[in-house]
Computed example of a mutant assay.
Amino acid sequence: MPKRILQGTVTSAANDQSITVSVERRFTHPVLKKTVRKTKKYRAHDSENAFKKGDFVRIIECAPYSKSKRWEVLEA
């Protein structure tokens, strides 16, 4: 099965080698037929501490780095 790749904005880069990425998805509500925006936060591994808050990044699934980190930064 291929690894998922998501795009989002860095919301926190406070911890060493870790960033929090907020990923937004849009879909049409099945009953209301209205476009709904939902966001979800993912913890990602950033080994060089290269990314700051507000950067737009792509993340990819990987083997777990810790209890909460299952993603790593692919590119900016």
Rank of each mutant, 00 (worst) to 15 (best):
A44M: 01
L6Q: 07
K38H: 09
D46L: 07
F51K: 04
R25V: 04
D55H: 09
K41P: 01
A44R: 02
K33C: 07
V10L: 06
K52S: 15
L6H: 04
K33D: 14
N49Y: 03
T11Q: 04
K67M: 11
I5G: 04
Y42G: 10
V23P: 03
K40V: 12
V23Y: 03
A13I: 06
D46R: 05
V36D: 03
T20P: 03
V57F: 00
V23D: 00
A63Y: 11
K40C: 13
P64A: 13
F56M: 12
M1A: 13
P2T: 12
I5K: 14
Y42R: 11
Q7L: 02
A44P: 01
L74A: 00
S68M: 05
K67G: 15
A76D: 13
R4T: 13
S68C: 00
K3G: 09
N15I: 06
Y42D: 09
S18H: 05
K33P: 03
F51E: 06
R70A: 07
A50W: 05
N49K: 02
T11F: 00
R25W: 03
L6F: 10
D16F: 11
V21G: 02
V57Q: 05
R37T: 15
V23W: 01
K40E: 15
L6Y: 03
F51C: 01
S47V: 10
T9M: 08
S18K: 13
V36A: 04
S22V: 10
M1D: 13
K41C: 09
G54M: 06
P2Q: 12
E72R: 12
N49P: 00
K34E: 12
S12F: 08
I60Q: 15
N49M: 00
A44E: 00
K34N: 02
